[in-house]
Every structure is written in structure tokens, then in C-alpha cells.
């Protein structure tokens, strides 16, 4: 089977000004990321705030430009943004992000908004659109009497359902979800996560699921990529990544998740702050916070290497043959 979407060496550089009059400095928000997502697969992306997760998500959809690297969709290079080919492809790839209220137009009823992609991409004969919208609403668990409601007349969870229904309207092959349940209460979050899993299995949609909530990612993702300062530092199946994290950053991340009824004592608490992306540490970007850093970590950038079947890490100590040879 070939990947539905593939990213090769993606780089995104933002020019960021410090202060009002500072001269712009380049920030490599995404710094050489490669990944693949198979049809029907869910790839979870986790990592520190500012590590480039959202930027990567936007680049996969072609709504943010890459300075280097390329994205292939169904084996073909992504057409340039805002071209006719790109617009046609966009129907197959949809974005769902955290704030449903910002994603919805407060002057339009949700049924109208769920049907919008059908109109924009001219996907169904007019007379079939209403029934398709009704099906979508049922699929995400909205009641038919809610069709004529406006966004502010729905709860947060219901609004996010509406956003997801709209994303599904064009029968996409890929959903990029950026913190889709982070603003929801746990009880509602569980409803939406279950719904997304059902829809995905039923329609074999591939999903890139970006979230800082490791517990949710654990539950929804087949495979997980961990980002730190613009790079993937570990990648593995969800089953093994959370059970036996290898990269020291992943270990700290997994260990920092509060588990009900389990005391803080004995857990690894990572010291220090995430580094400033405008001032990336030399060598391994994680070395100033890393409990097992060695000399080589301060000078050489560790590459993402396969450490076992289906599993890769970017760490000299965990994955580096050179270090092992030395030791």
C-alpha cells in the first residue's frame, strides 16, 4: 500500500521581529520533517508548545508554504496554493482546529455551514445536498432539530461536531485535526473522540491528530510522532511509544502526565524551559534539559534513526551507533 500523504524534509522559516524595531531573525519553526500517513491511518503529533505542530499541519494541507522539502498527496506533488488543482485537492483534505466558534460563521445556521463545502466544490446535485447534510448531522450526533440553530445556540461540544460534519461533507481522504477536543470538557471530549474514531473507521479517513493531551492521543492514534523545536525526535506505534518511550524528551513528557490517584513523587520532572526557537541550542536541541546528555550532544545534531521495527528516535545515546561504538 502506498502512503496517502507523504512529507519530505519540510522546512518552514518565519521571519520574527524581536520588539517593535528589532531586525527580523529567521526562526525555523519546522526544521526538516519527513513523515507518511497511510490511508485510514491516524498519526498523532505531540510535543512542546511552539514545537511546530500546527505549522506542520498547515504545511501538509498546503496552506502554509514550505521553504524546503515537498508534500506528496496520493503520490503526486501538492499543487501550489490557490491554484485550481489545489482547490480541487482541498476537498479531499480538511482541517479541524481547536476553536469551533472561530471556525463557524455566527450569522449562518449550522446546516448551511455544514453544506458549504458541497457548494464550494460543487459536489452534489442541489436537490441531494439537504439530505446529505442531514446524514452528516446524524453521523456526528447532532439532532435534526438543531439544523436551524446558530453557532452560539449550541454547546461547545455540539459546535465542534458541526465543524467536523462540515469537514466530512466533501468526503475527504485526510483530516488534519489541530487540538480538536482540547477546549471540551472531559465528558464531552469522550463523546467527540468516540465519534471521530467511528467515522474514521467507517469511511477509512486518514487523520493527523495534533494534541498536547497525551491520553487522548494514546486513545485515538495508531502511530505517534513527538516533536521538539521543529523536529521529530521520536516516532513509534502508539502502543509502544507510551509504554516504553525511548527519547529522553518523550520519557519526560509521558512521565509528566498526571495520573489520577498516582503521586507526583518518583516521576521525572524535566528541569528548565523549552528553548527559544530563535536561539536554537547547538547539537541536540534538547541537550540543555537532558538528564543523559553527553559531550557529543552539545555539538552534533542527532538524526532521526530507526532503532527497531517501526520505531525511530533522534538521540545520540538512544539511537546513535557512533556513541555505542565509542562506549
Amino acid at each position: 500500500m502506498s502512503p496517502l500523504i507523504e512529507a519530505r524534509g519540510l522546512v518552514r522559516v518565519y521571519q520574527v521581529r524581536r520588539g517593535l524595531f528589532g531586525r527580523p531573525i529567521p526562526v525555523r519553526a519546522v526544521d526538516g520533517v519527513s513523515l507518511t500517513v497511510m490511508p485510514g491511518e491516524t498519526l498523532g503529533i505531540v510535543g512542546e508548545s511552539g514545537s511546530g505542530k500546527s505549522t506542520l499541519g498547515r504545511m501538509l494541507l498546503g496552506v502554509d508554504d514550505a521553504q524546503e522539502g515537498e508534500v506528496l498527496f496520493e503520490g503526486r506533488p501538492m499543487p501550489a496554493m490557490n491554484t485550481a488543482e489545489w482547490r480541487a485537492l482541498r476537498a479531499k483534505m480538511q482541517l479541524v482546529y481547536q476553536d469551533p466558534l472561530a471556525a463557524l460563521d455566527r450569522r449562518l445556521t449550522i446546516a448551511v455551514q455544514i453544506g458549504e463545502p458541497l457548494e464550494i466544490h460543487d459536489l452534489l446535485p442541489k436537490e441531494q445536498r439537504a439530505s446529505h447534510v442531514a446524514e452528516l448531522m446524524a453521523a456526528v450526533g447532532l439532532r435534526s432539530d438543531q439544523a436551524d440553530r446558530y453557532p452560539h445556540e449550541l454547546s461547545g461540544g455540539q459546535r465542534q461536531r458541526a465543524v467536523i460534519a462540515r469537514a466530512l461533507a466533501s468526503r475527504p481522504r485526510l483530516l488534519v485535526c489541530d487540538e480538536p477536543v482540547s477546549a471540551l470538557d472531559v465528558s464531552i471530549q469522550a463523546q467527540v473522540v468516540n465519534m471521530m474514531r467511528d467515522l474514521q473507521e467507517e469511511h477509512r479517513i486518514a487523520m493527523v491528530f495534533i494534541s498536547h493531551d497525551l491520553k487522548v492521543v494514546r486513545n485515538i492514534a495508531d502511530r505517534v510522532a513527538v516533536m521538539y523545536l521543529g523536529r521529530i525526535v521520536e516516532e513509534a506505534s502508539s502502543d509502544v511509544l507510551f509504554k516504553a518511550p525511548q527519547h529522553p524528551y518523550t520519557q519526560a513528557l509521558v512521565s509528566s502526565v498526571p495520573v489520577p490517584g498516582q503521586l507526583l513523587e518518583g516521576r521525572v520532572i524535566l528541569q528548565g524551559e523549552p528553548p527559544n526557537p530563535a536561539n536554537r541550542p547547538a547539537g541536540c536541541a534538547f541537550h540543555p534539559r537532558c538528564p543523559i546528555a553527553r559531550d557529543i550532544c552539545r555539538s552534533a545534531v542527532p538524526q532521526l534513526r530507526r532503532i527497531s521495527e517501526g520505531r525511530a528516535a533522534a538521540c545520540h545515546v538512544v539511537a546513535g551507533e557512533p556513541v555505542q561504538a565509542e562506549a
Binding site: S187, A190, V193, V216, R218, N219, D239, F242, V259
Partner: peptide, 24 residues
């Protein structure tokens, strides 16, 4: 009890979550 059941577990498998039906 519903709150506890609705939280996905990091050490669990990929079982379905158990939501609290309805809304606040």
C-alpha cells in the same frame, strides 16, 4: 464516577471511551 470513566488512560489500550451522555 462518570468523570473518571471518561478520561482516556495513558497505560490502557485503545478501548472505546465511556462518555457521560448529554451536556451540562
Amino acid at each position: 464516577r462518570g468523570l473518571f470513566d471518561a478520561i482516556p488512560r495513558l497505560d490502557g489500550g485503545r478501548e472505546r471511551l465511556i462518555p457521560i451522555p448529554g451536556t451540562v
